[in-house]
Design a protein around this nucleic acid. Structure first.
Lengths: 266, 266
DNA sequence: CGTAGCTTTGATGTAGGTCAAGAAATGTGG
DNA sequence: CCACATTTCTTGACCTACATCAAAGCTACG
């Protein structure tokens, strides 16, 4: 039910910012890296993609990137920082749908739909490339394989939302939390922001609560349980896996839904 | 937690089957109708689409259309009948992610991913067109606008999953049920299978429970409440809106996430 | 006309919510 | 670098929405 977000996250400084300027090269961007998991991109496709990268923008915490109900919104590719996409209900409560990390494409629906059905806001300072509707449709027309790759990325995002749905529908709070933090770890590893031991994480317990359909109080209790069971520690902006295998077992974590097994299209 | 589905649904016969053979004409198919909500399809695009329609298949209740964990799955476009897509958890419980109705594209993820991350099974006898990976990628290469339209349709599906997520995370059982049945009504209206008074619905209370993250017992109680409040009646395979406006208010139903306002691409 | 799956209802249990309030941590201005 | 303000985190006491268990009554087809 918490509506406020943290203007000052405890882990803000500890998130590796990975010298944003270095990301300007298209091939090395987290986004290209992610799409490469699906198609082996040609030189031409790389260039088409760089057209999407022209307009670089910066967002500070508290400023909206995409706003529910507004028209003609842009999409973005996150270069650095974290964001969250969420819906606000009439009674003021909030459901966070997903968190975005570097390399994530965000706001696809707000481009394809006439009006955006959700909000996106930065959780840390964010560097992102603006993608306008026209650019996106042009690129699709020129390089269908890239279009397919974007479709694949969108499907992967949907798979994650589905997994969150299973979390809320059928898993206990503890399993849910473990599952979620493992998924986040997997995603961060894909872009080099996590390893087996854990990762820096700027999420407050309020944010976790709104993402997992729990109360902040219960989030706290669940985190304590997991810590006391020696599975994982989430403190001072860092998630540490104390017993990775035990955690995977506890969470029944099967990451096949993240489709990580190398390019499908040659 | 219910794992069994209904081999004999009470409403099975009352679902209008809309003479399946008449749907063979591409322009009139519910699928074309749905995509037309996004792009005005050219003759060429219609023809490309008809390539996706070649292999028509029939499924009986109890046979799987798509199976979790299997490789090289097909996708389908539903011509008639209802299906449900779901995930089974290790403990045997089930979360239904969505129900498919005529015109719905199903199993996109199972084509794009190496292995399917979910199951799809018919709830009534089903007529569907099989879409193989190759067909789909070919069509994308030839007609990018069609690819964009499919991307749009996939985004619309994701928007519905997101709304289900909000249901499970932040809405009470009663609001959740009302919201869900209204959404289903909107979707059915788009393909001419519902009107303001209601629609034929082959879903058992067990299925509703597994979709909404409730127990079947509680589904029953919630339906009774809604009936006693004069909002809606769900009996003998038919959902009747007794007080549509009251229901919309109760459910806080805002259907902008279905993006119904006419073609975006000329 | 039997029986297998549905629906309905009552009694009882519990996971997680809400309220409240103190302790850490973090940021801000001097 | 310190005192104060603001979030966050943490814990305890209590409560409620929904689950679970159990047992009848329906319905529909075989």
């Amino acid at each position: 039910m918490a509506v406020k977000q943290s203007p000052k996250s405890p882990a803000l400084e500890s998130v590796p910012m990975k010298e944003p300027t270095a990301v300007l090269s298209v091939q090395d961007s987290p986004f290209a890296r992610k799409l490469s998991a699906f198609v082996r991109l040609s030189q031409e496709e790389m260039e088409a993609m760089s057209d999407l990268y022209r307009r670089r923008r910066h967002f500070t915490v508290g400023s909206d990137m995409i706003h529910q109900g507004q028209k003609d919104q842009c999409a973005y590719v996150l270069a650095s920082g974290w964001a969250s996409s969420y819906k606000i209900l009439p009674d003021g409560s909030r459901q966070i749908v997903d968190f975005q990390i570097p390399g994530d494409f965000l706001g696809l629906r707000s481009v394809l739909f006439r009006t955006s059905d959700h909000n996106v806001e930065p959780l840390t300072p964010v560097q992102a490339s603006e993608v306008q509707q026209k650019d996106l449709l042009d690129v699709f027309g020129r390089t269908p394989r890239l279009a397919t790759a974007v479709l694949w990325a969108a499907s992967r995002d949907e798979a994650m939302v589905v997994e969150r749905l299973v979390d809320l529908g059928r898993r206990s709070a503890s399993v849910r939390m473990a599952h979620f933090l493992l998924e986040l770890g997997s995603r961060l590893r894909m872009v080099g922001l996590a390893d087996k031991t854990g990762y820096a994480c700027p999420l407050s317990q309020y944010l976790l609560a709104d993402a997992l359909g729990l109360s902040a109080v219960h989030v706290n209790r669940v985190l304590r349980e997991l810590r006391e069971e020696g599975l994982l520690t989430f403190q001072r902006g860092r998630v540490s896996f104390d017993d990775y295998d035990g955690l995977v077992a506890h969470a029944e974590f099967d990451r096949s839904y993240l489709d990580l097994d190398g390019p499908l299209l040659g």
